[in-house]
Design a binder for these strands. Structure first.
Length: 659
DNA sequence: AGCAGTGATGTTTTT
DNA sequence: CATCACTGCT
């Protein structure tokens, strides 16, 4: 039995007597100051776009530390690790290195770290592997194939639909039955089969020591709920909880927060209901409004003064959000009234849009705006393909965030699968993947090996009993090779290089464009150099994958300044002097998929709002008119509904002159 | 049992 | 423009 160490912590609540290094009153406005000085008990901070939300969090971290709270006992949960790092860096600049000691990360990475420690309490081994969405779909497909029969041959949900139902019902803490009835009622005939698949899927993961993204949260909650020992240790360690971007948390995360807050309820949630853009992940934009009800006593702070944008930009964004069907009690105001009006540029074609955006970027740069103060924001990853070509022609260095990441490509997943079986030998999903790469091995023979592994008859250092006839040798060679790497004392990067050499002939055989893919592998090898353990590498790849998309990201463009192209979701919390929003066309943004449903439509509006509020000084919205759209088979020619009825004096409109 | 070739299919957003 | 499921061939 583990012994619980209780450490007494004295928090000086008598604020007036302390003399701080930082002059909080001078550095902050009144509402920020109040939030920063919030001491114990629950609090909700509603902070509009650009109102210094990060600043408030950073100052509160510093303030708590100045008051004698030990940095490790502050837990800062953010949406991305990048955000957490940035905050801690700023806090360190403000105060000192102690701020770097603050605990923090995403819900998922925090959960992973906790679960690695307490895995045995929830019947897992601590070397569990984390599987991403597509892995999860594959595993679901595996069990799905066992369930489908004559009755289920038509209109039975696909693996990706099943994964979605599974994930959303878990994230919203709703039973499968209720969730299907409410959201996928057309599948209710198949309810028994679907539920069965989900049970089998859970068994599968437990058996092979795998967790999907949802399991990380579910198992953390389970641990907090069911193990008093773990809960006490965790509560004792993390005395002050701060959660950023609360509007994008879901029910499951909310329940975790309740347990993390513990009896003391020292939790501060920060967010903006008008910026909720993650409902597809089970977030509900009303969640944040329910937050106070979960606590006996919850203070609410509102911050409304915007320091980011000019009042010209805010006039436009206020207009956009006030058109929302469900009203937000929100009007941001700004002391900066010296700006240009936002521009709307209408072009004839996508080509012309790309050309004009490129040209404007060059003009802004000539006028002294550094290129890394400029961003192009897009609704979907592929909206920038044409622009990317144009930017390359014009020699404008750029980095693209969001969209398909190179980590998600088949060849990189293959590479990672080798590492994963070394780390967790039971990982059937990865075994399956790498076995199928071998010549003469199909699903059946792979399955044979999988069963041997599952029954502990075969492992990396005991594989003599494998008998697959002619193919035995090639499989045994794979085992021998992986076992060598497992035992080897060489660096992670060296191990990855060996794997790459092993994989290279397979790659060449499998893909015509193997040279392009090999370059990705070289990038991957470079990344692997940053890690000292396979565990750390795998964890980062699963939870904080390198954000850069597949791209010809040259080393020098990374060093120097670059233009940012980003999906709006990936641009959350960031800001630039100049922001372009391209493809503001009905059918693209809002996406054609969202138009049927009022809730998804409203989310598109908030998304547009988030995009526009990223701009500090200049906002340029563009769209091409008369575009034939293959998807819907129609001609798109209407400007986005979010900008079509903007009052004339709020924007300047441009069209490209005919030559 | 494995594999290659074919035809359909569908392409938000992310941990 | 892939990937994916399916089919028929070896």
């Amino acid at each position: 039995m583990k012994k619980i160490l209780l450490k007494k912590q004295s928090i000086n609540t008598n604020l007036t007597k302390i003399s701080y290094k930082i002059n909080y009153e001078l550095d902050l406005n009144k509402s920020q100051y109040d939030a920063v000085m919030h001491n114990e008990g629950a609090a909700l901070v509603i902070a509009g776009a650009g109102t210094g939300k990060t600043r408030t969090l950073v100052y509160r971290v510093a303030r708590l530390i100045e008051d004698g709270v030990s940095p490790e006992s502050i837990l800062l949960l953010t949406f991305t690790r990048k955000a957490a790092k940035e905050m801690l860096r700023r806090a360190s600049l403000l105060l000192d290195g102690r701020c770097e000691q603050v605990s923090g990360g995403t819900f998922h990475s925090f959960a992973t770290n906790i679960l690695r420690k307490y895995a045995d309490l929830i019947n897992y081994q601590r070397t569990f592997n984390i599987i991403d969405q597509s892995d999860s779909e594959d595993a679901i497909n595996f069990v799905r194939n066992k369930i489908i029969n004559e009755k289920t041959n038509k209109r039975f949900p696909t693996k990706s639909t099943l994964q979605k139902i599974y994930s959303l019902s878990k994230n919203s803490v709703t039973s499968y039955k209720d969730y299907i009835e409410e959201n996928f009622s057309w599948f209710s005939d198949y309810y028994d089969e679907i539920e069965n698949i989900f049970y089998l899927y859970d068994d599968y993961k437990l058996k092979y020591n795998l967790m999907d993204y949802d399991d990380l949260l579910i198992n953390l909650l389970k641990l907090l709920k069911e193990s008093e020992i773990a809960r006490k240790e965790i509560n004792n360690k993390y005395q002050f909880i701060m959660v950023d971007e609360y509007q994008d948390s879901n029910r499951l995360q909310h329940e975790i927060c309740l347990y993390l807050a513990g009896e003391k309820q020292n939790i501060m949630a920060v967010g903006d209901d008008a910026q909720s853009i993650y409902s597809f992940r089970g977030a509900n934009h009303q969640n944040i409004m329910f937050f106070p009800e979960s606590f006996g006593d919850c203070k609410i702070y509102k911050i409304e003064e915007n320091y980011r944008s000019t009042s010209q930009i805010l006039d436009l964004t206020n207009f956009i959000i006030n058109e929302a069907f469900f009203k937000y009690e929100k009007k941001l105001y700004s002391p900066r009234s010296d700006g240009d009006l936002p521009k709307i540029v209408i072009t004839k074609s996508e080509r012309e849009q790309s050309l004009i955006v490129t040209q404007l970027i060059l003009e802004y740069r000539e006028n002294g705006i550094p290129i890394n103060e400029i961003a192009v924001l897009i609704r979907s990853g592929f909206h920038s393909f044409d622009l990317e070509i144009e930017l390359e022609k014009a020699n404008i260095p750029f980095v693209k965030f969001g969209g398909i990441k190179f980590i998600e490509t088949a060849h990189i997943k293959d590479m990672i699968a080798y590492l994963r079986v070394i780390y967790n030998q039971k990982d059937a999903l990865s075994w399956q993947r790498i076995l199928l790469l071998l010549e003469g091995i199909g699903p059946n023979k792979a399955n044979k090996v999988l069963n041997l592994i599952a029954n502990n008859q075969v492992s990396l250092n005991n594989y003599d009993s494998i008998d697959l006839g002619k193919q035995s040798i090639i499989v045994k060679d794979l085992f021998a090779f992986l076992n060598e790497i497992r035992k080897s004392k060489s660096s992670v990067a060296d191990k990855c290089t060996l794997i790459a050499e092993y994989y290279r002939p397979i790659l060449q055989n499998k893909y015509d464009d193997w040279q392009k893919r090999w370059r990705d592998i070289e990038t991957y090898l470079n990344i692997s150099e940053r890690y000292e353990s396979i565990e750390a590498l795998l964890q980062d790849i699963a939870l904080e994958p390198p954000v850069e998309s597949v791209s010809e990201l040259t080393p020098e463009s990374k060093e120097n300044e670059y233009l940012t192209i980003s999906t709006i979701h990936s641009a959350k919390g960031l800001e630039w002097k100049v922001v372009f929003i391209i493809w503001a066309l009905e059918g693209k943004f809002p996406s054609a998929k969202a138009t049927e449903n009022i809730d998804t439509m409203e989310e598109e509006r908030r998304l547009f709002y988030v995009a526009a509020t990223r701009a500090k000084d200049y906002l340029i919205i563009t769209y091409p008119i008369n575009i034939y759209d293959r998807e819907s088979g129609s001609v798109l020619s209407e400007p986005s509904r979010f900008i079509s009825n903007i009052p004339e004096n709020f924007v300047e409109k441009f069209v490209v002159a005919n030559e």
